[in-house]
Amino acid sequence: MPQRPDGTDGTARLPTFRTGRGRRAIDAMVGLLVSRGIFPRSYLLTTTGRRTGRPLTHPVTPVESDGRRWLVSPYGQVSWVHNARASGRVSLQRGGRTEECTVRELGPDEAAPVLKAYLAITVPPRRHFRADKDAPVEAFAAEAADHPVFEILPIR
């Protein structure tokens, strides 16, 4: 089997992300701190459930560079990803301020540098990636299928 740019054959199993009681408790605590503006890089991301119509909120750490922002799904095809794809809209909240945005999903080549930048600013999700934070940007193009990336576009 040919090797990927990250030096692996791409068959390594990644840990499965599960939302359990412990994860929900951590997200609730982080969410409280983010809503008060305590985590400077994090936001609360709210999407509308594509089936239920109910708002669903999750803490996220966007990648920011040169006045542009992106959302990365470190845990794969999770609910907020499906909801953002379905509606094309999200809201971001931090420190009492809410911003309504549209989102545009990136292709693998466009997502690769964003995924690399994401691993440089956050540590816990690294185990869910095959490419190491120091791998060349080409290694991250293969990660795009497992880690969707969306550009955040403010509604004006």
Results as ranks from 00 to 15, higher is better:
residue 23 R to Y: 07
residue 33 L to Q: 11
residue 71 L to H: 02
residue 84 A to W: 00
residue 144 A to R: 03
residue 34 V to D: 00
residue 23 R to V: 13
residue 63 V to T: 04
residue 135 A to N: 05
residue 111 A to I: 04
residue 139 A to G: 13
residue 1 M to T: 11
residue 142 A to H: 13
residue 29 M to K: 09
residue 116 K to R: 15
residue 60 V to H: 00
residue 38 I to M: 13
residue 57 T to Q: 08
residue 1 M to F: 10
residue 153 L to R: 15
residue 81 V to H: 01
residue 67 G to E: 01
residue 22 G to M: 12
residue 65 S to C: 08
residue 106 L to Y: 07
residue 115 L to E: 01
residue 18 R to A: 11
residue 94 R to L: 06
residue 95 G to Y: 05
residue 2 P to G: 10
residue 3 Q to A: 12
residue 124 P to E: 10
residue 68 R to F: 03
residue 16 T to A: 14
residue 34 V to E: 00
residue 5 P to C: 10
residue 2 P to Q: 11
residue 50 R to M: 07
residue 115 L to N: 01
residue 43 Y to V: 14
residue 47 T to H: 07
residue 74 P to D: 01
residue 103 V to A: 08
residue 6 D to E: 06
residue 69 R to P: 01
residue 122 T to W: 09
residue 115 L to K: 02
residue 143 E to G: 07
residue 30 V to M: 14
residue 97 R to H: 12
residue 130 R to D: 07
residue 47 T to Q: 07
residue 44 L to V: 05
residue 145 A to F: 02
residue 109 D to L: 14
residue 89 R to G: 05
residue 118 Y to V: 05
residue 93 Q to S: 15
residue 59 P to F: 01
residue 51 R to K: 15
residue 132 D to H: 15
residue 104 R to C: 05
residue 110 E to W: 04
residue 45 L to M: 06
residue 15 P to G: 05
residue 134 D to E: 13
residue 149 V to L: 05
residue 111 A to Y: 01
residue 75 Y to L: 09
